[in-house]
Write a protein that binds this DNA or RNA. Sequence first.
RNA 1: GGUGGAGUGGCCGAGAGGCGAGGCACAGGACUGCAAAUCCUGCUACACGGGUUCAAAUCCCGUCUCCACCUCCA
Length: 474
Amino acid sequence: MSALALYDTLTRTTSPFVPLKSGEVSIYLCGATVQAPPHIGHVRSGINFDILSRWLTKSGYKVTFIRNITDIDDKILAKAVVEDMPWWAVAMKYEREFTFAYSALNVLPPTYEPRATGHITQMIELMSDLIAKGIAYAPGNGDVYLEVRKLSSYLTLSRQKLDDLLPAGETGDGFKKDPRDFALWKAAKEGEPFWTTPWGNGRPGWHLECSAMIHAYLGDAFDIHGGGLDLIFPHHENEIAQSQAVGWKFAARWMHNAWVTTSGEKMSKSLGNSLLVRAMLERYRGIEIRWYLVSAHYRSMLEFSETALNESVVSFRRIENFLHRAGEKLGYIPEPVISQNFTDAMNDDLAVPQGLAHISEAMRIGNLALTSDDVVGLSAAASEVRGALDVLGCDPFDPAFGKPENDQAEALDGLIKLALSQRQSARARQDFAASDSIRDSLATLGIIIEDTPQGPRWSLTPTTSRTPHQREER
RNA sequence: GGUGGAGUGGCCGAGAGGCGAGGCACAGGACUGCAAAUCCUGCUACACGGGUUCAAAUCCCGUCUCCACCUCCA
């Protein structure tokens, strides 16, 4: 039995995972700033850490998973002007978009999903402590800054030197002692929302909310802090700075997911709407998009291409088809079983691509068993495939992806069987023109006919319309 | 300028001193009335130049190209 080892951004090495508290794991993931609808890059992060959480759970840990929502920030205020809505309505609108996307892609809900605006009290307490320790200061304009030169250590995660940083663009209008000092709290400008503090009316800076929420739910020390690569600096550095300055131990391990890129470049919102999750769900099923995003290692860039996505969809349908055929042959849906091979792959810093090779191997064995009527072998192989898919959140039988069977499906089955019996009689009298014409007509409707030694079987070409629940607002 | 990451066959994508990961595509074969599905076989790649070693895609030195972060970011 292999032991779980995970990469740590702080040490830049993969090391055995040892939880702070035996049998329990606490994870904090920097979630969305809800100022725009999510594209597939955003949900890749959610999916990667969903898999981490699922794998820890399968490994027997009790997982506490906190994923925050930043619902107040400059961009949200800017969007409120553009959309002519209150800022809180903007935040809620896009929060729902994220929730919809996570749900459609089978990202399990976190244990708790705290919002920044719900934790102003904790933020004020944290600032008070930092000011009392002489590490933060309120210059009197309503801002509160953290004085980075006062820190005993800083920039350990990104391994940079303070003096090597390019001069900050934001100077704080001369109120900062050093241009690299960062804002814990920002004074409200005319017409902006604010909360009252001892230092004036204002709102949270970008980094403070995470430290406050982490401490509220996970305490002084917790196991894993996650987020996208770009958060290493400044966001996570500043979280470390303000949290450790008040004496919290903070994260024991840092994990960062890589980008989805297009044409070799980081995805940006200026690329248009085509890669928004909602738009992609018009063309692909959630499980297929998830499969595509899962197939690359979480620390590798995933270069998006339509071709690669389509190939990924085909390969997923092949697996799905195998499981369905196995189920038909066995008369029951095989229970998920996690193989040793797959366990070893996952334990090696969540090496999903290696796990995929084991799925292929199990499929090959399973298909052989299927043609040679080896029911025991088939059941074992199908269980192994399903177990692996289950860990990846891509189990076709997961109720999260909806049940294709319903009353109409029964009627459809009857109709197609009727057509198939016509075709069989045509074949029996060697009238292949007629039999092929029936097959072609069905194919036009998206119904695929395959002749097997047990007789013909039919399946539908998967379309998004088969899973309409995924497109509904929740 | 500073800090990281990447370059692998037609394509995608693992691996990190020796034994061809895997998938897709393609070609041949088996099966089939024909297909489809499936199986079998084939396709010996690691940016470039040096070096270390019995042995290098993997380690070392150098070079090139691309990407990210350096206070908006998943």
